[in-house]
Write a protein that binds this DNA or RNA. Structure first.
Lengths: 283, 283
DNA sequence: CCCGGCGATACCCGGCGGGTATTGATCCGG
DNA sequence: CCGGATCAATACCCGCCGGGTATCGCCGGG
């Protein structure tokens, strides 16, 4: 099975329309039809059920869509990492959510850079839920994630530490002076709904709160009195003056982990992981 | 990057000899040379350093060898799982080490099969250290592994339980009557060396003990008085009459886990995992 | 110094990927 | 009930590229 065939199939399976898929791929429709048929012939499997009005995935087609995406990600990763290994660029790319993990990132980078033989480390800040794909497609080598929000499925990782969560509210809000809040109370602050984070596919759940993609956005909204949020307590380290925090003892504790692709046995990654562990306050 | 190019490169990188690699691939040498050069041109990266007498990997080449193997595994997995999804075959393939996990396998299979909508489950017994590759190449969907011996790198998993280890010795051996052994004592039983298990690449470490690939082989050797072993205590359930066990309290505890590829969100896998958890004696 | 091994080059051929034009089936509006 | 619109499939052509054979150039060893 060639990656071209896989790319073609994934494109068709995604919008279930040969014409549009061909356009997206930059080829004409007939060659695309033929390529898919040939793929089906070679696999000996019907992947798509086509009537002349609609295209639908068979069960096997759904499997190939899922597995094919993963395979294409791996190929992408091989391509990108090879290019990076050659073209002197950054030796490592570390990715984390914008505005999160600010507590141990400086220490980790400094601790690693101080080691003999350390390579250049690029830091990539991305929106919520994007880290996994960046790791899987080779755009990044190592990520700082927060359990239980992010998934470490498919990666090796080391736990770095656990912290409680606090509610973030506008500084002038009545609740800012409270000693503590429960999750239920934080979710029901009048006029301050909790925000909605994107699902893995980029869509947003229904609900009253504003849609947000990163912490900076969110803090801005809170300062405007449009939302409240419950975040790991380390965010207090760099909090804006117009926001206040209230502990939420019954919120689930957040574990920060450092994760990397399982087959990456690179020395540089291993050293960076050690540096991150050393940068933890109490490890 | 096409999988054909990747396959070609991996072949050359593996034996560092264009002629032999071409033979293994079933093509002539010149097209192979040309394909590699073309891959290098397209990547803009030198992968191999060739003199007319020797071929060597560059640093980038080493990266592509590692990443390329992983990518090819993913593509293989997509192929195989798609074929299986279509051609009615077994719905799930569960893999475990021959002779291990015998305690909870029957209960798991029975518990799962009793559920409505259960699909056929094939059981694949393999040698030590082979499970990971079977999972990654789509030959299996779910594996029973034993930490800390096996690696769960790159997989999702659930812990099923923890057990101590016992020494296995021939029934007539003087040590068979002891109440317990330390690891050090078990390793130094006169005339009964501990066996050598294969590394991940299939090679064996140096040492005095016999080389073994699975538990059946090992038990046979112990019965012959050629070896001793330290194994999880669940192996007592189906122990041959000519063998005896002695607890080894200071051996590291063994955790049995059920693991599956991270992106496999299949309902069947989820149900089988639940059945395995339910089959545990005290979970 | 010549031979043997090995990768690169030169050259040819056939198949396949891609394009255009058209057909055929199905749904929808009048 | 018919005609147009939509969309995948088919037919057919072309040029590129993957594969083969023959040969060269480089280098190390006897």
């Amino acid at each position: 099975m060639e990656t071209r065939e896989l790319r073609y199939f994934v494109a068709v399976a995604e919008d279930l329309h040969f014409g549009r898929a061909a356009q997206r791929l930059g080829i004409a429709q007939p060659p695309l039809s033929r390529a898919i048929r040939q793929l089906e012939r070679r696999l000996g499997v019907t992947l798509l059920e086509r009537t002349s009005r609609a295209v639908a995935l068979t069960e096997a087609g759904a499997v190939l869509l899922r597995e094919g995406r993963a395979a294409l990600d791996s190929v992408d990763a091989a391509d990108r990492r090879t290019r990076r290994a050659a073209s002197g660029g950054p030796g490592l790319v570390l990715v984390t959510k914008a505005g999160a993990a600010a507590d141990l990132l400086p220490g980790t980078l400094a601790g690693y850079a101080a080691q003999p033989g350390a390579v250049a480390v690029d830091v990539l800040l991305c929106g919520v839920g994007e880290q996994e794909r960046l790791l899987r497609t080779g755009r990044a080598d190592v990520a700082l994630l927060h359990l239980p929000f992010d998934s470490v499925a498919g990666f090796d990782y080391e736990e770095l530490g656990t912290q409680g969560q606090v509610a973030i509210v506008p500084a002038g809000h009545p609740s800012a002076t409270l000693e503590k809040l429960t999750m239920a109370e934080a979710a029901a602050l009048p006029g301050l709904p909790l925000p909605r984070w994107p699902n893995r596919d980029g869509s947003y759940p229904d609900g009253p709160g504003p849609q947000v993609r990163d912490t900076t956005q969110l803090l801005q909204l809170i300062a405007l009195g449009r939302a409240a949020a419950v975040l790991p307590e380390s965010c207090r380290l760099h909090l804006r003056a117009d926001l206040a925090t209230v502990p939420v003892p019954d919120a689930p504790p957040v574990t920060t982990v450092i994760a990397w692709p399982a087959h990456s046995r690179s020395l540089a990654v291993a050293r960076l992981v050690r540096a991150a562990q050393a940068a933890m306050p109490r490890s």
